[in-house]
Write a protein that binds this DNA or RNA. Structure first.
Ligand SMILES: [Mn+2]
Ligand SMILES: [Mn+2]
Ligand SMILES: [Zn+2]
Ligand SMILES: [Zn+2]
Lengths: 136, 136
DNA sequence: TTGTAAGTGAAAATAACTTTCATATAGATA
DNA sequence: TATCTATATGAAAGTTATTTTCACTTACAA
């Protein structure tokens, strides 16, 4: 983490460490406010503003990802450097990262049909995780 | 439109007509505030609040869709009843609807590997449309 | 060490959205 | 067509989410 930050001119502060740690320790996606609440337990005195700023930087660097499906826009989950996507439990918010989206064929078809030069894609699945199935 | 609304206990008001018309006439996705500005030209006196309420209902009924990719969370584009997805120009916001996402194989693999019961998916492509390519 | 560019947090400002409530109207019914 | 009522509207206020500003602090390169 430190290296990646420094390479981009950012500093590694205790606050940034704490925010990343909090997101990484959670199984489910968290809003900035929820992250703030958790971080404060280990790091009182941190400001919500710093949480916002940190989330932005960590997203830019790929340490964390924003999720969208199921009304979760603007909440975050730990990331990984490789290209991947998210499978989200609509009940408890648990997120599983997966790879192998295999969309290049579709991408090519769209590019041909529309003339768009395709840059990226957003793919998320929404479902019910095993533990939530038992409860329901 | 009128029939679908009435079937669900909603009324067809001039305001709702105007909001849908505005979204449908736009090639690109619009925020509630942008929709408000446009609707007001034909329908002064409408409140932003009514725009919010209408967008919610029209989304629920499938007349319009919310888009997410490229920081467009919370903006809307005209919809269609069949299952489809969006290809969005990251420069001008133009949206093209497409069908044939063909994700059932991937869906099945994920279901087996994770135990999730998969309910739905969110798929959007981001790219540069033909006219924006010429300009750039 | 020291210097400095980058980061922090308090406060205020702005933007985004929702709740409340009195009034108005779509459209079903007689 | 006139009446009735559930639904919709808009003004205002309230809440939540996010950003800007600025004086002070700190990471870390030299
Ligand atoms: Mn991720
Ligand atoms: Mn659509
Ligand atoms: Zn779950
Ligand atoms: Zn374009």
């Amino acid at each position: 983490m430190g290296g990646t930050l420094r390479r981009r001119g950012y500093k590694l502060t205790p606050q940034r460490r704490a925010v990343l740690r909090t997101v990484a320790l959670s199984q489910d996606h968290l809003t900035p406010a929820a992250i703030y609440d958790r971080v404060r337990q280990q790091h009182p005195g941190i400001g919500l503003l710093t949480v916002y700023r940190t989330l932005q930087i960590l997203t830019e660097l790929g340490f964390i990802c924003e999720v969208h499906a199921g009304g979760s826009c603007g909440s975050y989950i730990v990331g990984s450097p490789e290209h991947h996507h998210h499978l989200i439990c609509s009940n408890c918010g648990k997120v599983i990262n997966f790879t192998g989206c295999n969309l290049s064929e579709l991408e090519q078809r769209l590019s041909q049909q529309t003339g768009f030069e395709i840059e990226s894609h957003l793919l998320e699945f929404l479902g019910c995780c095993r533990s939530c199935q038992k409860i329901a």
